[in-house]
Design a protein around this nucleic acid. Structure first.
Lengths: 152, 152
DNA sequence: TGTAATTATTTCAAGCTTAAACTTTCAAGC
DNA sequence: GCTTGAAAGTTTAAGCTTGAAATAATTACA
């Protein structure tokens, strides 16, 4: 019993630790993007998803990819669109669907940003080599999927 | 060169993976708190900090602990105060300082919440035993501190 | 065909979050 | 004492985020 409770407590402490580190890093990146590149993390994340997929993409697909609500994706895309970095076009087939994609200038903008972002991550992870990265990969794999299909 | 670039790219992928897992889990907990306990993650976090310290606490101290801005702490505390779960009292010494603490009812409220929360974490981490938890502890320790003292 | 259920997206209200400006108080040095 | 600068907290404006409601289009099927 002491063992089981101790394990539960340790899992909680591990979660809190994980959260502190990732929040700290996210805050750091947020400030990095603001100070050095005059932009925000949500905008960066949307652009990264669009760049990665490399072709116009459904709104719903985008929000699933980013783990955010549909409404959220709408407003971030609104702002990027106003800045001329992305475009919305109706799908030719299904008239409900809106396809979002980077404009040429959005693509150029993101490429620069992505390089700076990767360099910053690289310094933040400066202590970790291939072995440690593999460990994280494996550990995260074991945590993955646990969040789905729970009905409370 | 291929090695160095490969390492940088792997660090980036690891960061993205880390972020996806923690965001997924945070979303899960957010919904858990909303559906089962009619509350939110920020409120929970504030209460957890106050409960842990176990005595009235400076606002600035609170926001440092939670890695959020001062203004943010103010508004969350405002709402908890309105619900009668925390109190603000002026410090007897320094008149600028405001001390926040849980009310008795806030303490009772949090204790229940904390148990449910720990149980939920416990299921989310169900695959991980002591060895894996130690690995995460060590890996996070190596990432820690990297976010401070950078001047961009 | 008609209609009921589903899906894609936007809109809305509320709450969360930040950075910057502002107010009040304290501390140091003259 | 006075003044200057720093510190604690709140307020403000803007942006982020959510869940739920609303709209519009598609699909399933009676």
């Amino acid at each position: 019993m002491s063992t089981a409770n101790g394990l539960s407590r340790r899992r909680l402490k591990t979660w809190i630790r994980l959260l502190r580190i990732t929040h700290g890093m996210e805050n750091h990146l947020r400030e990095f993007l603001r100070v050095n590149h005059n932009t925000t993390l949500p905008r960066f994340d949307v652009a990264a998803a669009l760049y990665r997929v490399d072709k116009p993409m459904k709104m719903s697909n985008l929000s699933q990819m980013l783990l955010v609500s549909n409404g959220n994706a709408t407003t971030v895309v609104d702002r990027l669109e106003k800045d001329g970095l992305v475009t919305r076009e109706p799908s030719t087939g299904d008239k409900r669907v809106v396809l979002v994609g980077l404009t040429p200038s959005g693509r150029r903008w993101f490429k620069e940003l992505a390089n700076a972002h990767e360099a910053e991550i690289n310094t933040l992870f400066g202590d970790l080599g291939h072995d440690e990265l593999s460990m994280i990969r494996d550990l995260m794999q074991r945590l993955e999927g646990e969040t789905d299909g729970k009905d409370f």
